Computed example of a mutant assay.
Amino acid sequence: MEVTALVLLVLGVLLAEPVSRGLAAAHWPSRDPVGGLLLWQAVGLAGGLSLLGSGIVFGLAPFGSSLPAAVTGVAGAIRTGTWPPGFDLLHGAALVVALLIGLRLVGVLGTVTVRTLRARARHRDLLDLLGTPWPAAPHARVLDHPLPVAYCLPGLRSRLVVSAGVLDTLDPAQVRAVLAHENAHLKERHDLVVLPFVAWGATAPFVRGMVCAQVAVAALVEMRADDVAANRAAPAELTAALGSMGHATPAAALSSFTTALDRRLARIADPPAPLPAAVQLGVRLAAVALVAVPTALLLVP
């Protein structure tokens, strides 16, 4: 099991740093945002499994030749009070480190989730109090504000928000394009895609690859929403609408606007050629394989 632990550790470090940095710098995800998001999720899940699993596998190595056998061995040792002679301080320390990393990750994810949900709930209550329901779109609210701003507030009771400035500044086709973009965020639950990477980056902000992952995933969900909107509205209307909008949005909201807006507008106006079907299939298979490898190393004797 020590060799398995070493392989898992190397895989986890590679995914957290050079692989994440390389994928964040790659240009092909802009040609297949869905595939890029799937691969990012696989990198995050496989990296977490590998880093946590390496410590657990090494720590439990004296109890069995595989993780399932070792878990059974630990249960037997607890019942009998007899510990294998190979279980020493180093193995115990590996288990403690793995436990601390796991608690840190779960704690940060829980904290970020609770903070985000509370911010959304407060903002939703304010919207219902101050906003005017808009019959043109379900769960939409119009805020009496002169600046053109649009965003969505995801969740079980989602809200789509536009300011009066949007309705005054944009023509109906441009308004529909903006709504299509924001509805894509809501329907595909991009907030759930982004949230784990926010937690991942906050868990170890000193690991540059994790920070790069958070930024890259945020950009890809915007590209995906752009693609959905461009399929439902004229690209020229979408670019004109996005270019006219304001950039200020509240905490916990998902917005159409990022610091990379100029690059997004250029991408909408001149869409890159999609990846060949065989390459898209390969990306999805690679995502499955990334998760399958650490899982197999953990479970297969």
Rank of each mutant, 00 (worst) to 15 (best):
R159T: 00
V161H: 03
V162F: 06
V162T: 04
A164P: 07
A164W: 08
A164C: 07
G165F: 14
T169L: 09
T169V: 12
P172F: 01
P172G: 00
A173E: 05
Q174A: 06
V175N: 09
A177H: 06
A184N: 01
H185C: 06
L186E: 11
R189W: 03
L192M: 11
P196F: 05
F197H: 11
W200T: 13
G201S: 09
F206G: 15
C212S: 10
Q214R: 14
A216Y: 04
A216R: 13
A218K: 13
A219P: 05
L220N: 04
R224L: 08
V228Y: 08
N231V: 03
R232W: 13
A236Q: 12
A236T: 12
E237D: 15
M245I: 09
H247S: 15
H247P: 10
H247K: 12
A248R: 15
T249M: 06
P250M: 06
A251K: 10
A251W: 12
S255I: 03
S256C: 06
D262R: 08
R263V: 13
R264G: 05
R264M: 10
R264P: 06
R267V: 11
A269K: 01
P271Y: 08
P272T: 08
A273C: 10
L275G: 05
P276E: 11
P276V: 11
A278L: 08
V279W: 15
